[in-house]
Design a protein around this nucleic acid. Sequence first.
DNA 1: GATGATTTGTACGTATGTATA
DNA 2: ATATACATACGTACAAATCAT
Lengths: 230, 230
Amino acid sequence: MTSGAPRQVLSQRIAAQLEERILLGRIAAGARLDEVALARSFGVSRTPIREALQSVVARGLAVRLPYRGVLVSEISPDRIDQLFEAMGEIEALCGRFAAERMTPEERTALRAQHAEMSVLAGAGDAEGYEAANTRLHQIIYAGSHNADFAEMAEAMRLRLSPFRRSQLADAPRMDRSDAEHARIVAAIVGGDGLAAESALRRHLLSAAQTMREKWRTLRAEPVPPRSRAS
Amino acid sequence: MTSGAPRQVLSQRIAAQLEERILLGRIAAGARLDEVALARSFGVSRTPIREALQSVVARGLAVRLPYRGVLVSEISPDRIDQLFEAMGEIEALCGRFAAERMTPEERTALRAQHAEMSVLAGAGDAEGYEAANTRLHQIIYAGSHNADFAEMAEAMRLRLSPFRRSQLADAPRMDRSDAEHARIVAAIVGGDGLAAESALRRHLLSAAQTMREKWRTLRAEPVPPRSRAS
DNA sequence: GATGATTTGTACGTATGTATA
DNA sequence: ATATACATACGTACAAATCAT
């Protein structure tokens, strides 16, 4: 009976921290993740750093160029569109199956989550709304009753998070999102798979649209990358 | 005191070999991948072994329990159904987008690949047919013109490969597969996204059915391994 | 339940291969 | 083109945790 602390492994904790830094934008796209520098910064040896970097690469947040290092993934506008498109289709898939398979308890939880979010939206609590939004969508993933769908959706959500930062910061966005959620939840609770599918697709399309606008204004001046073409 | 050994990227070659062994069933599900044993067996140190194992875990072929080791993923019948379901939906997705977006050259390549496969099916070349089948589906993934769809489809295909072993071994299966491919290719080349989607879904459903039967007969003796929880 | 054996996790040293001056 | 610099890849030693007795 080992009732000790969760005793998480170093490399995993470091991987999580690196991911968070990347997703929060503290480490810019295109930046090199230097093993020795990170080792010093974390006060550990290079071994756990290496394993953490491998994990980060495996999740698609960075790429490893042979003998050049690990670079935080730089993403082209076209790539962003693909990401949102994929996310939309995967979410639509989850919604369709969730509408067909959710248990009564899951449907109740979904409605409760949405009700809670409407309150947050009304109160203008953007941060709380964002967090609740993630949970709402995760409820839908789980409702698909298919671990692979849920896993793919989570992976896509992770990859997209750098571009979703403070996307719902303003009240109009939250209201619009809340209205879209109402249709999604109604379709799922009502067991209408096709309606849920198209409602989710539309929802993600509008999210992509919002993001595109903000993204464009945000990076008016791009950071000059050390392009080293051979 | 390090003897000068040929330096290359061992971990990747080892990861590939381990994957192949798992996928071919040479390493059984539930087995523990012992680091020192593998290191001895490959004649290398534990370091590249550890990195290879991380790669195997990242691809979903095994799981790592902290301080306990890496276990080859054990898969329940329900889980297999989920895998095939997910594969079917992802392929259907790729097919729909491919029908809408493939370039003329890609459509030509798709038709050529199918024609080649019909010959192989007629000749009863099961091995060649299986390899060509993978390429056909990969052409469809690429035709979706979305790197995320393609990546997800590839990942699913990898995870399913243990259960697809010699699935198309007999001529009737190949003929049926070839007929289904004909509909899929016609729909995609003709630009009918919805038809491609449903044709691919049906194709995977029938593949799942075939697999289920074979799998059931293979392990007619249900070995209930009460593997320790979590 | 405590102790020893086994295995995983981390630290660190060194050689190799690429890129750059 | 040769050489230097430097980051990566592998090996080995030690520490921590699990398991078996």
